[in-house]
Amino acid sequence: MGSAPLLHIDNLTVKFTTADGAVDAVSDLSLHISPGECLGVVGESGSGKSQTFMAALGLLAANGSARGRALFHGDDLLTLGDNELNAIRGDKVAMIFQDPMTSLTPHMTVGRQLSEVLIHHRGVSAARAREESLVMLKRVRVPDPERRLAMYPHELSGGLRQRVMIAMALLCGPELIIADEPTTALDVTVQAQILDLLREVKDTLHTAVVLITHDLGVIAGLADRVAVMYAGRIVEMGDVRQVFADPRHPYTRGLLACTPRMDAAVTGALFTIPGQPPNLEHLPAGCAFAPRCASVLDACRNDRPALRGLGGGRFKACIRDDLAHAS
Protein backbone atom coordinates (compact mmCIF):
# COMPACT_ATOMS: atom_id res chain seq x y z
CA MET A 1 0.00 0.00 0.00
CA GLY A 2 1.63 3.21 -1.15
CA SER A 3 -0.25 5.79 0.92
CA ALA A 4 0.72 6.88 4.43
CA PRO A 5 -0.84 4.69 7.11
CA LEU A 6 -4.00 5.84 8.81
CA LEU A 7 -3.19 4.06 12.04
CA HIS A 8 0.29 2.96 12.93
CA ILE A 9 0.70 0.92 16.09
CA ASP A 10 4.33 0.90 17.09
CA ASN A 11 5.81 -1.40 19.73
CA LEU A 12 2.66 -1.61 21.77
CA THR A 13 2.78 -3.47 25.07
CA VAL A 14 -0.34 -3.82 27.19
CA LYS A 15 0.04 -4.81 30.83
CA PHE A 16 -2.63 -5.78 33.32
CA THR A 17 -2.02 -5.88 37.06
CA THR A 18 -3.95 -8.68 38.70
CA ALA A 19 -3.99 -10.25 42.15
CA ASP A 20 -1.47 -12.80 40.84
CA GLY A 21 0.92 -10.19 39.47
CA ALA A 22 1.32 -8.47 36.13
CA VAL A 23 0.61 -10.04 32.73
CA ASP A 24 1.54 -8.73 29.32
CA ALA A 25 -1.63 -9.22 27.29
CA VAL A 26 0.04 -7.64 24.24
CA SER A 27 3.82 -7.53 23.69
CA ASP A 28 5.89 -5.40 21.31
CA LEU A 29 3.19 -5.33 18.72
CA SER A 30 3.54 -3.24 15.58
CA LEU A 31 1.15 -2.97 12.64
CA HIS A 32 -0.37 -0.38 10.38
CA ILE A 33 -3.65 0.13 8.57
CA SER A 34 -3.77 2.11 5.33
CA PRO A 35 -6.75 4.20 4.22
CA GLY A 36 -9.51 2.06 2.77
CA GLU A 37 -7.97 -1.32 3.53
CA CYS A 38 -9.35 -4.15 5.64
CA LEU A 39 -6.94 -5.73 8.09
CA GLY A 40 -8.15 -9.03 9.53
CA VAL A 41 -6.88 -9.90 13.01
CA VAL A 42 -7.26 -13.56 13.88
CA GLY A 43 -6.23 -15.67 16.85
CA GLU A 44 -7.65 -17.75 19.64
CA SER A 45 -9.34 -16.54 22.78
CA GLY A 46 -7.02 -14.45 24.95
CA SER A 47 -4.42 -13.89 22.24
CA GLY A 48 -4.72 -10.12 22.65
CA LYS A 49 -6.78 -9.19 19.58
CA SER A 50 -9.25 -6.98 21.42
CA GLN A 51 -6.87 -5.43 23.94
CA THR A 52 -4.54 -4.25 21.16
CA PHE A 53 -7.23 -1.96 19.82
CA MET A 54 -8.80 -1.14 23.18
CA ALA A 55 -5.37 0.16 24.20
CA ALA A 56 -4.98 2.16 21.00
CA LEU A 57 -8.32 3.86 21.62
CA GLY A 58 -7.72 4.54 25.31
CA LEU A 59 -10.37 2.05 26.41
CA LEU A 60 -8.33 -0.25 28.67
CA ALA A 61 -9.79 -1.37 31.99
CA ALA A 62 -8.54 0.50 35.06
CA ASN A 63 -5.94 -2.18 35.85
CA GLY A 64 -4.45 -2.00 32.36
CA SER A 65 -1.69 0.20 30.99
CA ALA A 66 -0.19 0.64 27.55
CA ARG A 67 3.33 1.45 26.40
CA GLY A 68 4.46 2.28 22.88
CA ARG A 69 2.75 4.44 20.29
CA ALA A 70 -0.53 4.40 18.38
CA LEU A 71 -0.25 7.06 15.68
CA PHE A 72 -3.48 8.16 14.05
CA HIS A 73 -2.73 10.69 11.32
CA GLY A 74 0.56 11.18 13.11
CA ASP A 75 -0.97 11.96 16.55
CA ASP A 76 -0.09 9.49 19.29
CA LEU A 77 -3.43 8.35 20.71
CA LEU A 78 -1.70 7.00 23.81
CA THR A 79 -0.72 10.52 24.85
CA LEU A 80 -4.07 12.20 24.20
CA GLY A 81 -6.40 13.26 26.99
CA ASP A 82 -9.98 12.05 27.42
CA ASN A 83 -11.51 15.03 25.63
CA GLU A 84 -9.32 14.64 22.59
CA LEU A 85 -9.93 10.88 22.48
CA ASN A 86 -13.67 11.39 22.82
CA ALA A 87 -13.59 13.71 19.85
CA ILE A 88 -11.90 11.03 17.72
CA ARG A 89 -13.89 8.00 18.91
CA GLY A 90 -17.28 7.78 17.24
CA ASP A 91 -16.19 10.39 14.72
CA LYS A 92 -13.01 9.53 12.80
CA VAL A 93 -12.72 6.10 14.38
CA ALA A 94 -15.84 4.05 15.07
CA MET A 95 -16.26 0.73 16.83
CA ILE A 96 -18.56 -2.22 16.37
CA PHE A 97 -18.64 -4.91 19.06
CA GLN A 98 -19.80 -8.50 19.25
CA ASP A 99 -22.68 -7.66 21.53
CA PRO A 100 -24.43 -4.47 20.41
CA MET A 101 -26.24 -4.38 23.76
CA THR A 102 -22.99 -3.36 25.44
CA SER A 103 -22.64 -0.27 23.27
CA LEU A 104 -26.28 0.69 22.86
CA THR A 105 -27.94 2.37 25.81
CA PRO A 106 -30.89 0.20 26.83
CA HIS A 107 -33.29 2.92 27.98
CA MET A 108 -32.83 5.24 24.99
CA THR A 109 -34.65 4.87 21.68
CA VAL A 110 -32.64 3.99 18.61
CA GLY A 111 -33.46 7.39 17.10
CA ARG A 112 -32.24 9.30 20.12
CA GLN A 113 -28.96 7.33 20.31
CA LEU A 114 -28.20 7.87 16.66
CA SER A 115 -29.10 11.56 16.84
CA GLU A 116 -26.92 12.18 19.89
CA VAL A 117 -23.85 10.98 18.03
CA LEU A 118 -24.45 13.58 15.33
CA ILE A 119 -25.37 16.33 17.76
CA HIS A 120 -22.28 15.58 19.86
CA HIS A 121 -19.76 15.35 17.03
CA ARG A 122 -21.29 17.57 14.40
CA GLY A 123 -23.36 20.03 16.39
CA VAL A 124 -26.31 19.64 14.02
CA SER A 125 -29.92 20.40 15.00
CA ALA A 126 -32.15 17.67 16.39
CA ALA A 127 -34.31 17.69 13.26
CA ARG A 128 -31.31 17.39 10.99
CA ALA A 129 -29.86 14.61 13.16
CA ARG A 130 -33.09 12.63 12.92
CA GLU A 131 -33.16 13.03 9.18
CA GLU A 132 -29.57 11.84 8.79
CA SER A 133 -30.19 8.93 11.15
CA LEU A 134 -33.08 7.82 9.02
CA VAL A 135 -30.98 7.98 5.87
CA MET A 136 -28.32 5.90 7.56
CA LEU A 137 -30.78 3.23 8.77
CA LYS A 138 -32.02 2.93 5.18
CA ARG A 139 -28.50 2.69 3.92
CA VAL A 140 -27.76 -0.30 6.18
CA ARG A 141 -31.09 -1.74 5.05
CA VAL A 142 -32.97 -1.71 8.31
CA PRO A 143 -36.52 -2.54 7.24
CA ASP A 144 -39.19 -0.12 8.39
CA PRO A 145 -36.68 2.53 9.48
CA GLU A 146 -39.13 5.22 10.68
CA ARG A 147 -40.71 2.79 13.11
CA ARG A 148 -37.31 1.58 14.35
CA LEU A 149 -36.29 5.09 15.38
CA ALA A 150 -38.89 4.96 18.13
CA MET A 151 -37.91 1.48 19.33
CA TYR A 152 -35.60 0.45 22.16
CA PRO A 153 -32.61 -1.83 21.52
CA HIS A 154 -34.16 -4.84 23.28
CA GLU A 155 -37.11 -4.69 20.93
CA LEU A 156 -34.84 -5.49 17.98
CA SER A 157 -33.50 -8.87 16.87
CA GLY A 158 -29.77 -9.53 17.14
CA GLY A 159 -29.24 -8.93 13.44
CA LEU A 160 -31.13 -5.64 13.47
CA ARG A 161 -29.25 -4.45 16.53
CA GLN A 162 -25.99 -5.12 14.73
CA ARG A 163 -27.27 -3.12 11.74
CA VAL A 164 -28.14 -0.24 14.06
CA MET A 165 -24.62 -0.45 15.51
CA ILE A 166 -23.18 -0.27 12.01
CA ALA A 167 -25.43 2.67 11.16
CA MET A 168 -24.22 4.42 14.29
CA ALA A 169 -20.60 3.68 13.40
CA LEU A 170 -21.09 5.14 9.92
CA LEU A 171 -22.96 8.30 10.96
CA CYS A 172 -19.95 10.62 11.07
CA GLY A 173 -18.27 9.10 8.03
CA PRO A 174 -15.35 7.53 9.94
CA GLU A 175 -12.01 6.83 8.28
CA LEU A 176 -11.54 3.69 10.34
CA ILE A 177 -13.97 1.14 11.77
CA ILE A 178 -12.78 -1.33 14.36
CA ALA A 179 -15.14 -4.31 14.25
CA ASP A 180 -14.50 -6.72 17.14
CA GLU A 181 -16.21 -10.06 16.42
CA PRO A 182 -19.13 -8.26 14.75
CA THR A 183 -20.88 -11.47 13.71
CA THR A 184 -19.84 -14.00 16.35
CA ALA A 185 -23.12 -13.79 18.26
CA LEU A 186 -25.27 -14.06 15.14
CA ASP A 187 -26.82 -17.00 13.31
CA VAL A 188 -24.98 -17.97 10.13
CA THR A 189 -27.65 -16.69 7.77
CA VAL A 190 -27.70 -13.37 9.62
CA GLN A 191 -23.90 -13.33 9.77
CA ALA A 192 -23.91 -13.58 5.97
CA GLN A 193 -26.15 -10.49 5.79
CA ILE A 194 -23.91 -8.46 8.09
CA LEU A 195 -20.70 -9.51 6.31
CA ASP A 196 -22.31 -8.49 3.05
CA LEU A 197 -23.12 -5.11 4.53
CA LEU A 198 -19.57 -4.62 5.81
CA ARG A 199 -18.23 -5.56 2.37
CA GLU A 200 -20.49 -2.96 0.81
CA VAL A 201 -19.36 -0.30 3.31
CA LYS A 202 -15.75 -1.05 2.53
CA ASP A 203 -16.26 -1.08 -1.24
CA THR A 204 -18.50 1.96 -1.57
CA LEU A 205 -17.36 4.24 1.26
CA HIS A 206 -13.69 3.14 1.23
CA THR A 207 -13.64 3.07 5.00
CA ALA A 208 -10.66 1.25 6.49
CA VAL A 209 -11.75 -1.70 8.63
CA VAL A 210 -10.00 -3.70 11.33
CA LEU A 211 -11.88 -6.99 11.46
CA ILE A 212 -11.18 -8.92 14.66
CA THR A 213 -12.39 -12.51 14.62
CA HIS A 214 -11.44 -16.08 15.48
CA ASP A 215 -13.08 -17.32 12.25
CA LEU A 216 -10.67 -17.77 9.35
CA GLY A 217 -13.59 -17.96 6.93
CA VAL A 218 -14.77 -14.49 7.89
CA ILE A 219 -11.25 -13.14 7.30
CA ALA A 220 -11.08 -14.90 3.93
CA GLY A 221 -14.23 -13.19 2.74
CA LEU A 222 -13.36 -9.64 3.70
CA ALA A 223 -9.75 -8.87 4.61
CA ASP A 224 -7.02 -7.51 2.33
CA ARG A 225 -4.28 -8.34 4.81
CA VAL A 226 -4.29 -10.57 7.85
CA ALA A 227 -2.42 -10.52 11.16
CA VAL A 228 -2.33 -13.81 13.08
CA MET A 229 -1.91 -13.41 16.84
CA TYR A 230 -0.68 -15.87 19.44
CA ALA A 231 0.00 -15.14 23.11
CA GLY A 232 -0.11 -11.36 22.71
CA ARG A 233 2.09 -11.16 19.63
CA ILE A 234 1.70 -11.14 15.89
CA VAL A 235 3.21 -14.38 14.61
CA GLU A 236 2.41 -13.88 10.94
CA MET A 237 1.16 -11.02 8.80
CA GLY A 238 0.73 -10.42 5.10
CA ASP A 239 -1.55 -10.34 2.09
CA VAL A 240 -4.59 -12.49 2.87
CA ARG A 241 -4.37 -14.61 -0.28
CA GLN A 242 -0.68 -15.28 0.19
CA VAL A 243 -0.99 -16.15 3.87
CA PHE A 244 -3.90 -18.53 3.28
CA ALA A 245 -2.27 -20.16 0.26
CA ASP A 246 1.20 -20.38 1.73
CA PRO A 247 1.24 -19.90 5.49
CA ARG A 248 4.81 -19.63 6.78
CA HIS A 249 4.36 -19.81 10.54
CA PRO A 250 3.67 -23.26 12.04
CA TYR A 251 0.78 -21.83 14.09
CA THR A 252 -0.92 -20.32 11.03
CA ARG A 253 -0.51 -23.62 9.23
CA GLY A 254 -1.96 -25.50 12.17
CA LEU A 255 -4.96 -23.17 12.46
CA LEU A 256 -5.77 -23.53 8.78
CA ALA A 257 -5.30 -27.29 8.87
CA CYS A 258 -7.51 -27.94 11.89
CA THR A 259 -10.47 -25.94 10.59
CA PRO A 260 -13.02 -28.32 9.03
CA ARG A 261 -14.12 -26.80 5.74
CA MET A 262 -17.11 -27.17 3.49
CA ASP A 263 -15.07 -27.11 0.30
CA ALA A 264 -12.83 -30.09 1.02
CA ALA A 265 -13.43 -33.82 1.24
CA VAL A 266 -14.14 -35.21 4.71
CA THR A 267 -11.04 -36.81 6.14
CA GLY A 268 -10.88 -39.37 8.92
CA ALA A 269 -9.51 -37.42 11.84
CA LEU A 270 -9.12 -33.65 11.87
CA PHE A 271 -5.62 -32.25 12.03
CA THR A 272 -4.94 -31.03 15.55
CA ILE A 273 -2.50 -28.71 17.25
CA PRO A 274 -1.50 -30.60 20.39
CA GLY A 275 -1.70 -29.01 23.81
CA GLN A 276 -3.43 -25.80 24.75
CA PRO A 277 -3.15 -22.08 24.22
CA PRO A 278 -0.56 -20.75 26.68
CA ASN A 279 -1.25 -19.15 30.00
CA LEU A 280 0.08 -15.60 29.69
CA GLU A 281 1.22 -15.68 33.30
CA HIS A 282 3.55 -18.58 32.63
CA LEU A 283 4.88 -18.13 29.14
CA PRO A 284 7.82 -20.36 28.28
CA ALA A 285 11.14 -18.73 27.44
CA GLY A 286 11.76 -18.31 23.72
CA CYS A 287 8.94 -18.95 21.26
CA ALA A 288 5.54 -19.08 23.01
CA PHE A 289 4.36 -21.65 20.46
CA ALA A 290 7.29 -24.01 21.07
CA PRO A 291 5.43 -26.41 23.44
CA ARG A 292 2.89 -27.11 20.67
CA CYS A 293 5.08 -26.79 17.59
CA ALA A 294 5.95 -29.85 15.50
CA SER A 295 8.95 -28.03 13.98
CA VAL A 296 10.48 -26.91 17.27
CA LEU A 297 14.28 -26.85 17.62
CA ASP A 298 16.34 -26.37 20.76
CA ALA A 299 17.20 -22.88 19.56
CA CYS A 300 13.51 -21.92 19.60
CA ARG A 301 13.58 -21.95 23.39
CA ASN A 302 16.31 -19.31 23.71
CA ASP A 303 14.92 -15.98 22.55
CA ARG A 304 11.48 -14.70 21.62
CA PRO A 305 11.51 -14.79 17.80
CA ALA A 306 11.10 -11.26 16.43
CA LEU A 307 8.56 -10.47 13.71
CA ARG A 308 10.75 -10.12 10.65
CA GLY A 309 10.06 -9.20 7.06
CA LEU A 310 10.10 -11.93 4.42
CA GLY A 311 9.68 -9.53 1.50
CA GLY A 312 6.49 -8.66 -0.35
CA GLY A 313 4.86 -7.26 2.77
CA ARG A 314 4.99 -10.60 4.56
CA PHE A 315 6.21 -11.10 8.12
CA LYS A 316 6.64 -13.96 10.52
CA ALA A 317 7.91 -14.53 14.03
CA CYS A 318 9.65 -17.90 13.71
CA ILE A 319 13.34 -18.65 13.54
CA ARG A 320 13.05 -21.40 10.96
CA ASP A 321 13.43 -20.63 7.28
CA ASP A 322 13.91 -24.22 6.17
CA LEU A 323 10.28 -25.30 6.54
CA ALA A 324 8.98 -26.55 3.22
CA HIS A 325 6.32 -24.35 1.67
CA ALA A 326 2.81 -25.63 2.15
CA SER A 327 1.40 -27.10 -1.03
Partner: peptide, 13 residues
Protein backbone atom coordinates in the same frame (compact mmCIF):
# COMPACT_ATOMS: atom_id res chain seq x y z
CA UNK B 1 -27.38 -22.34 5.45
CA UNK B 2 -24.64 -23.99 3.45
CA UNK B 3 -24.04 -20.98 1.28
CA UNK B 4 -23.66 -18.88 4.44
CA UNK B 5 -20.75 -20.86 5.89
CA UNK B 6 -17.59 -18.90 5.12
CA UNK B 7 -14.86 -20.92 3.40
CA UNK B 8 -11.34 -20.28 4.71
CA UNK B 9 -9.98 -19.64 1.23
CA UNK B 10 -10.08 -16.03 -0.01
CA UNK B 11 -10.51 -16.85 -3.71
CA UNK B 12 -13.24 -19.43 -3.20
CA UNK B 13 -15.03 -17.44 -0.53
Amino acid sequence: LMAAIPIPDPDRE
